[in-house]
Design a protein around this nucleic acid. Structure first.
Length: 569
RNA sequence: GCGCCUGUAGCUCAGUGGAUUAGAGCACCGGACUUCGGAUCCGGGUGUCGGGGGUUCGAAUCCCUCCAGGCGCGCCA
């Protein structure tokens, strides 16, 4: 990237201008090359002189002058100047943008990729909703987020695995309640007047699942006792259906997991007990009041937490410890990213403490808590509860506004921010959706390329046919001088750094914003720069290159977001 | 009560140490096409960046404090 090239120039100038002693004051890695918001301030700027001023106790403008005096020559750098309090502004030759375009065209779908990950193994665990109902709009946010984050990490050269953690262990009280709900509905279908569990799941899908059981088994399970065992029995009857439902719901969002990891497996293989024994042995856990406790209080948590209840059942954190051991030890991930819903917020400190107690460096685990999504309908917030049954499934939402729009909207906001989702607006305005704006830009470029091919602009056409007498000469990119052409080229140039930043900051929400800006540059170019022009074949060919490059970048960023790049709409 | 997230234009939100004019979309008003798809483009903004204090050459951004909204604080997951 050009930024690296400029930073390297500064680094060389810095080495030349200052003594070793002074040089130690700041590390060369800290050189930041940024894009000035005001174009008059050049194509790139560096603030190193101001940073050095504090360290060296010298005038920042003077430092900047010295750096510039020692700056090696570079064919792409046309002018360098000190500005304002001590910025070093780089004014580049337009040639750099043409090189960017050539680079983009030759790289194609890998334009924007990097190797900062260097093959490190990263796991992204997300969604992981309990298998007690379909994915719905309340727990779906982590889906597009985690999937796009995984895409970004892959782009940056990490080896990525997408994982869904299935809380299917019998000790999960949610499962017991759900199983009891299914059992009640089953008996009701058989004509019995039974009460419904107080905290039960009221969704229609429970009735449907119960109906399936009646269809399949008839009255066979009428006499199953109505207790915990019975509830778990009913859960087992429907478990596979529930998981299949989750799988297909995720698929509907365009998400496919590499691994569906079963909590039950951890128990069955004795891994939970194994970890508990280990922690007891190492002293990180102890027995008190008939329960087993983990010394999370010593590792940053507010207090110690129970690992094994007095009744002998392991708590969820015991499972998660075994699960973490599997991730970090057995499968050897360098990094694990947990994407959790807001209800898990209070769980982060104890999980970190647990990892610390296990001797796993907490820098290897990252916890991302996405904030709640508030859905508005008729101007009022919906109160959605899985248990009351007034849910909107992700499928219904996708049917309403389409998968692409669903993904785009969920991605649009920072996960730290609460997301307001106006359902009326999403339905009514589907044609005004920003995702259409971006997709339309791609479509328009495809239209030009189709047209160019038919009219013989693309290279090999026979001379004398229509507008095609251009031979095979290389396009002269230096003909691209229109402000809208330069602005679009600049967007293409900015793309790799943007992808890198979104990856490093784990901020997929930067992508929809950048995509919209890129689309805007495309639409402006389209409006003001006629591409196919018989009277100006040289310019046409240069512009066709730009069209191809812009299409590539649009397709790449849409691909990262898991949104289709349409050739026609 | 404690902890975390959030507070930026009418609405929804970017920007999280940089440039005496803090940006975008939506909404609203007014314009633009005899040629590549008008799902487009152009123009129109008097904002206490929640309030106050501090750090810094420089603060929407960092620190302290207060206010408001959301969420979390179980031998539930």
């Amino acid at each position: 990237m050009i930024q690296d090239r400029l930073a390297n120039l500064i680094k060389q100038a810095y080495t030349a201008a200052f003594s070793d002693e002074e040089r130690d004051k700041i590390s060369a890695d800290e050189i930041q090359i940024e894009t000035p918001s005001n174009p008059e301030h050049g194509d790139f700027a560096c603030n190193i002189a101001m940073q050095l001023a504090g360290e060296l106790g010298a005038n920042p403008r003077q430092i900047a002058e010295e750096l510039i005096a020692n700056l090696p020559a570079d064919s792409l750098v046309r002018r360098v100047e000190v500005a304002g309090p001590g910025f070093i502004n780089f004014h580049l030759s337009p040639q750099w943008l043409y090189e960017v375009l050539a680079n983009c065209l030759s790289q194609g779908e890998v334009y924007g990729c990097s190797n900062v990950g260097a093959g490190q193994k990263v796991q992204v665990e997300f969604v992981s909703a309990n298998p007690v109902g379909p994915i719905h709009i309340g727990n779906a946010r982590g889906g597009p987020f985690g999937d796009t984050l995984a895409n970004l990490l892959e782009t940056a050269g990490y080896e990525v695995q997408r994982e869904y953690y299935l809380n299917d262990a019998p000790s999960n009280t949610q499962l017991q309640i759900f199983g009891a709900s299914v059992q009640s509905r089953y008996l009701q279908q058989l004509g019995e007047e039974v009460d419904f569990p107080e905290e039960g799941y009221h969704g229609d899908y429970v009735v449907e699942v119960a109906q399936e059981l009646v269809d399949e088994y008839g009255e066979k399970y009428r006499d199953v006792p109505r207790n915990t065992e019975g509830a778990l029995f009913f859960f087992d009857l429907v478990k596979d259906r529930m998981i299949e439902q989750l799988r297909s719901d995720c698929a509907a969002m365009g998400i496919s997991f590499d691994v569906w990891f079963s909590e039950t497996k951890l128990h069955e293989e004795g891994l939970v007990q194994q970890q508990i024994d280990q922690l007891l042995k190492s002293g990180a856990a102890y027995e008190k009041d008939g329960a087993v406790w983990l010394r999370t209080g010593q590792y940053g948590d507010e207090e110690d937490r129970v690992l094994v209840r007095r009744d002998g059942a392991p708590t969820y954190i015991a499972s998660d410890i075994a699960y973490a051991a599997d991730k970090f030890y057995t499968r050897g991930f360098d990094r694990v990213i947990y994407v959790w819903g807001p209800d898990h917020f209070g769980y982060v400190p104890r999980m970190k403490a647990a990892l610390a107690a296990m001797g796993i460096g907490i820098e290897r685990a990252e916890f991302i808590i996405y904030q709640t999504v508030r859905f508005l309908e008729g101007g009022k917030p919906l109160s959605l509860s899985k248990r009351r049954g007034d849910i909107i499934t992700i499928r219904e939402l996708i049917e309403d506004i389409g998968r692409d729009a669903v993904r785009f909207f969920f991605l649009m906001r920072s996960v730290d921010a609460h997301l307001d989702f106006d359902l009326d607006l999403a339905r009514q305005q589907s044609a005004e959706n920003p995702v259409y704006y971006v997709q339309y830009a791609h479509t328009r470029l495809c239209g030009i390329l189709r047209e160019a091919e038919e009219a013989g602009y693309l290279g090999d056409a026979v001379a004398g046919q229509g507008c095609s007498s251009h031979g095979k000469k290389e396009a002269d990119l230096s003909l691209l001088t229109h402000p809208d052409e330069l602005a679009l080229l600049r967007k293409l140039a900015d793309y790799p750094a943007e992808v890198l930043r979104a990856t490093q900051e784990l901020s997929p929400h930067r992508l929809p914003h950048f995509a919209r800006e890129l689309a805007q540059a495309v639409h402006q170019f389209y409006t003001n720069c006629r591409v196919l022009d018989c009277n100006n074949p040289e310019l046409s060919r240069a512009r066709l290159k730009l069209v191809k490059g812009a299409r590539i970048v649009l397709a790449n960023i849409l691909g990262l977001m898991g949104i289709t790049a349409l050739e026609r709409m």
